[in-house]
Design a protein around this nucleic acid. Sequence first.
DNA 1: TTTATAAGTGTTATTTTTACATTTCCAAAT
DNA 2: ATTTGGAAATGTAAAAATAACACTTATAAA
Lengths: 248, 248
Amino acid sequence: MIIFKKNVILPVFCENLPHMLNNYSKEDKVLLAVDCIIFGFDKEELKILLIKRDFEPEKGKWSLMGGFLKRNETLDDSANRILHHLTGFHNIYMEQLYGFSKVDRDPAERTVSVAYYALINIEEHNQELIEQYSARWFSISEAPKLIFDHDQMVNHAIRRLRYRTSNKPIGFELLPEKFTMRQLQKLYEAILDEELDKRNFINKINGLDILIKLTEKDMSSSRKGSFLYQFDKEKYDKKVEDGFTFKI
Amino acid sequence: MIIFKKNVILPVFCENLPHMLNNYSKEDKVLLAVDCIIFGFDKEELKILLIKRDFEPEKGKWSLMGGFLKRNETLDDSANRILHHLTGFHNIYMEQLYGFSKVDRDPAERTVSVAYYALINIEEHNQELIEQYSARWFSISEAPKLIFDHDQMVNHAIRRLRYRTSNKPIGFELLPEKFTMRQLQKLYEAILDEELDKRNFINKINGLDILIKLTEKDMSSSRKGSFLYQFDKEKYDKKVEDGFTFKI
DNA sequence: TTTATAAGTGTTATTTTTACATTTCCAAAT
DNA sequence: ATTTGGAAATGTAAAAATAACACTTATAAA
């Protein structure tokens, strides 16, 4: 709905003051895209899920999964919808990143894209959907060049992910429900791109007191076997409420 | 420019795959607003610059300064343009914050707004322009309720500003060229909303080695007078290059 | 029974952060 | 000329957080 004003004296500078007059009709509209950087973690590597374009423009090139904002949805809704299409899941951990707006970023039409990043348990994706979209997991270091400004988006997402480790226990979103300390450490090493000391890491994690140690062991990686842990979301939430910050 | 595809067999799921077919013409377009949280620092308080709407809807209410993205500009361009209108200055320190997209956030029309925050030296604004826009500086604690989701934007900006102190010497953007240690400390106290120990603060700042101590003194606040300092951007830039982080 | 291998475990040194009180300088008043 | 008032300037010691470091244990497979 567009409202037109009556009986208003327009000073000269008013055409530059859209918030002062709701003559929205004169304003340019744009396509608003939402592109998702989907992170997964596989054994020792941080990966991203990319889709292959099989049409022009940029046919045969790899790209982030994306879509356009619809009139009746929020950006979060849109990102959720896009993630659901590719993975089959709802309630994926997801965060808005940044708006990319170079005028010619998409050669087909003026488009502004808001990038989101998402964290998923790589074991849980829907293989069928992924095939439908010609999607593939790439480790960060081996990912191909992407279309448009998608590489820039990925770099932005990695930086954000790295920073987020100091605020939120995002790592747990990327692991299966039950995991070993070694897996958790490898994940943090992958995200932070640095090696961590095993004892210091375990001490710090235990100090946070947000893990449940199970009696169950994972026997696949050694003869001794390693205990499995679970993330205790309840304990974590209580701690966050009391104003605590998660820091590795 | 919109490109229509020919001779393409459309699988059933293709309408949900805009990146797979550039049939952009079917997609909804939206108005993209840019709203600016303009911070200033006055003596002991962090302030924001607000404008008063003198028209419907939301006549008489206070709001952030904003505008709409034009077809041929980036979001940064747009924010710069808006800031220039209100202050008369170019090259204002500015950062993109977040995209706000509640479907009915603007009752007049579907609008997505990308918020920016900016830091300006409060002594340097253009009084004439500010009067033209019925603008006023408010201390954060005394700011009126704002229209739409602008309060949410301001809160977001304060959080970001607080975080940025640990990365960037943003404080200096808010001060006059020459300033006293006390002013700098008061500013950080205002941003972080906590009292800091004078000696520890000075030790830390001096440890960063990015200030030039002038021989000149400010005599307005005491009989002894206090030395004035200048931010040494060159030294700072060199340090950033060597991978250093600024932390108070 | 032996062996091979990753899992598990604490202490000390170093660095960073916090807490804290006295002296100095100068303009204004006398 | 002397005194006075008040903010500016300054350093050290205790506490906390972080970083460095190596041996023992549990188990399956040989």
